[in-house]
Amino acid sequence: MKILVAVKRVIDYNVQIRVKEDNSGIVTDNVKMSTNPPDDNAIEEAVRIKESGKAKEIVAITIGEDKAQETVRKALAVGADRGIHVKTEGIVEPLAVSKILKAIVEKEKPDLVFMGKQAIDDDCNQTGQMLAALLNWPQATFASKIEVKDKSLEVTREVDEGLETIEVKIPAIVTCDLRLNEPRYASLPNIMKAKKKPLDQMSATDLGVDTKPRIEQIKVEEPPKRKAGIKVANVAELVNKLKNEAKVI
């Protein structure tokens, strides 16, 4: 079995996001970037399946500018066998990403495609679903447990009501939740070895995909600041304020 894992380079989750002064987007200069956290879970799960003998090859793919290769290198350092970098400029929307992934799937013919449930930068949560539609493959989203069976997967999904277990036939798309596993650390010797693993480069145009955005971004704003709280003297005042000012009771 062959698993394709999509990883995205995003602003590190510890960094405080700053909106550009002209509201045209967010500041990405001088900002620490890293792999989208649930994508780390996706890679980890693929590596565990390979370690259990149920998969033979893991291919990690990323889409973006040159520096996005770092995320593929990291995937290679924790156990992916080879990498693909599809070079693009500017914003690439989920639909364009799905089309690129579809082109790669047709070339690579994987049995499974894993990725994070959503990226922490745009929070779209669309790519896996769109890719499933384009390929007409079954999908299992928000996976918190994956069991590989003979020709299917049993997947536990994190849904609003609790947990849902479904079975999907292979080939399939799985989007991974943070609860799926605890990603391993890349060890120093493995980072060195990863530098020697193959990494193919191509552009979206090579794959015949038009990545022009379909959505026009008008402006980006910071969420409104929370007002400072006040101290009330007693319960009566609190009840009064809740009733007459906040009008919640």
Binding site: E182, P183, Y185, S187, L188, P189
Partner: peptide
């Protein structure tokens, strides 16, 4: 890497070199 607050190895433990 991957030592818990009491000094035990976590599942993700990775020895230094």
């Amino acid at each position: 890497m991957g030592i818990d607050k009491d000094g035990n190895k976590k599942d993700s433990f990775e020895s230094g070199i």
